[in-house]
């Protein structure tokens, strides 16, 4: 090895150690794709439940939807049932997504020779959870207060902030996904009543795009 090759090798090693020791780089792109598909399926299911409700509540008109979005609405036939169903769907989507992501990330970390529970993954998790849990609690309070129209924008905004906050401790690309979710959440806040649509775009379509890009960029070649 020539002197120059040795120095180049040194620099390469320095770079990789700096990255490896401070960032958790084993997030799986494939899990992004699966999460997105599950979210879209959840959105379709939720939409069909909503439609069934509109049919039952005899008006059957779409604009009825926006009228009960804004403020407290009187209890009607099957309303609390519907809320329960929607929350159940959301929880199901969340559980499957988290489960798949954790499983694939553990697998990816093993492949990269990175340990799954070290300082960098802990930093990533903590910094992601702070905005995420705040957003989750906020959303639950909104549901409790019957402010359903705000739930989708709030979750999108807080999820975006969580990703932006987490991006310092993992692959930088996640920052762009965070910004996209944040912008989408703000757009949704300006057009309340289309929450399900924005949710589908944010948690479904954006995850699929992001996951595909990450998969092609980092996983396929390795």
């Amino acid at each position: 090895m020539t002197e120059q090759e040795k120095h180049l090798q040194d620099l390469k090693e320095i770079r990789s150690l700096m990255e490896k020791s401070s960032k958790f780089i084993s997030l799986s792109g494939l899990s992004g794709i699966i999460t997105g598909v599950v979210a879209l399926a959840g959105a379709v299911l939720a939409y069909s439940r909503l439609q069934a409700y509109w049919m039952r509540s005899d008006s059957g008109r779409f604009n009825e939807y926006s009228s009960f979005i804004h403020t407290a609405i009187p209890e009607r036939m099957g309303w609390s049932n519907l809320v329960f169903e929607l929350v159940l769907i959301a929880c199901g989507v969340l559980a499957i997504s988290v489960g798949v992501s954790v499983y694939l990330t553990v697998k990816q970390a093993k492949k990269n020779g990175q340990s799954i529970w070290d300082k960098s993954s802990q930093m990533l998790l903590i910094n992601m959870m702070i905005p995420l849990v705040s957003g989750g609690v906020f959303a639950l309070i909104l549901i409790k207060q019957d402010l359903f129209g705000l739930v989708a924008p709030v979750t999108l905004i807080f999820y975006g902030l969580a990703l932006i906050n987490a991006s310092k401790y993992t692959l930088h690309d996640i920052r762009y996904l965070g910004i996209a979710q944040l912008v989408l959440g703000l757009m949704n806040a300006a057009s309340i009543g289309y929450g399900l649509f924005y949710w589908g775009i944010g948690f479904g379509v954006f995850h699929i795009i992001y996951g595909t890009v990450m998969y092609l960029k980092y996983e396929r070649k390795s």
Binding site: D10, E13, I14, R15, L17, M18, S21, S22, D118, K119
Partner: peptide
């Protein structure tokens, strides 16, 4: 030694085992 310095430069504090 290069490795030790690289790791310490981007982390506040690093344990022996890590």
């Amino acid at each position: 030694r290069l490795g030790i310095m690289s790791v310490l430069l981007v982390n506040d504090e690093v344990e022996f085992n890590r």
